[in-house]
Amino acid sequence: MAADGGSRVGGRVLLAIAVTMVLWASAFVGIRYAGADFEPGALALGRLLVGALALGALLVARGEGLPPRAAWPGIAGSGVFWFALYMVTLNWGERHADAGTAALVVGTGPVLAAVLAGFVLREGFPVRLLVGMGIAFAGAAAVGLANGGGSATLRGVLLCLLAAAGYAVGVVAQKPALKHASALQATTFGCLVGAVACLPFAGRLVVDVAAAPPSATLAVVYLGLFPTALAFYTWAYALSRTTTGLLGATTYVVPAIVVLLSWVLLDEVPGPVALLGGALCLVGVAVSRSAPRRARNRP
């Protein structure tokens, strides 16, 4: 039974959101590790190819075919702008910008997505959503600045800004597609479109795989299987059951999780600014999630 837009999000949706956020947080470690041996475009293509293969196998196993024609504009848009443009420009931008600057600029992505969704998808601009996103963005900025080296080139800033724009356009494009296609279809073919868009980096990928140590290649495989295939699938599942702005605001949980994972797994004790930033992220997301939901949730 469909619930109205003001109903509480179900347990499956909350689980999908939690899986997405944790895996996306883990991707920062994987990208940092694999990025030492793989060029930005090759790294994006590698994880997209792995993700497309894994998702395609699941699609066949579940007996789901091609998405309806009405879903393809949104799938193509998400594939080009989010899966391809976002991944390549983020990988590239972080080579020319410190972590703090990258976090600040890329952190505008959910804000841009909420604004676009407000106009294009007519989701509106709930006050609590805007206030919560402002608090969460301040927290994300604090975490980034606490971990940043304080240096960035204009190229790095522009690339990170392009990544944020790609994220925003891709997410807003994916939302209408989910009215016609399943979450698995939208994710599988979006990932495939992204991989095709990144094929110009195929030669570089072959060179990097041949030269990289097995551990770096395994990191690319991990990025493809989990932060790409699984996390983007659970994201699409959640997006089909809530609004773009609210789900985008939830991504500000990621910096807080990164702080926690770095503390537990890497023994990187966070400083007071990072802890405060992580707390602000959680508070901001909580405020945002209390905003009225206009989207209809499906079971």
Rank of each mutant, 00 (worst) to 15 (best):
A113S: 12
I75V: 15
V105I: 14
G46K: 03
L48V: 08
A84L: 06
N147M: 14
T108D: 09
I135R: 02
V111E: 00
G79V: 01
L59K: 01
A117L: 04
G56T: 05
G41R: 05
G74W: 00
T89W: 06
G144H: 04
G144R: 04
A114Y: 07
L43F: 09
E39T: 14
F137S: 10
G41Q: 06
V105N: 05
Y86F: 15
A142G: 08
L90F: 15
L90K: 07
A140G: 15
L129C: 06
V106W: 04
A71K: 08
I135Q: 01
V143A: 02
L59E: 00
F81C: 15
V115H: 10
V60R: 15
G118D: 10
L43M: 14
N91S: 08
G124L: 05
V80R: 02
A42K: 01
L53A: 15
G77V: 04
V88F: 14
A52L: 06
F119N: 09
F137P: 09
T89M: 13
G134W: 09
L145H: 11
G93S: 07
G63N: 06
G74I: 01
L121F: 10
R47Y: 07
T101R: 05
G118Q: 12
L112W: 13
P68V: 12
G100T: 02
A57D: 10
F119Y: 14
L45R: 00
L130Y: 03
H96R: 11
R62E: 13
P40F: 01
P68K: 14
A114C: 09
W82P: 02
L85Y: 03
L66A: 15
A70V: 11
I75M: 08
V115R: 13
A117H: 02
A113K: 00
W72Y: 05
A103R: 00
P126S: 04
L48T: 10
A70D: 14
G74V: 02
F81A: 15
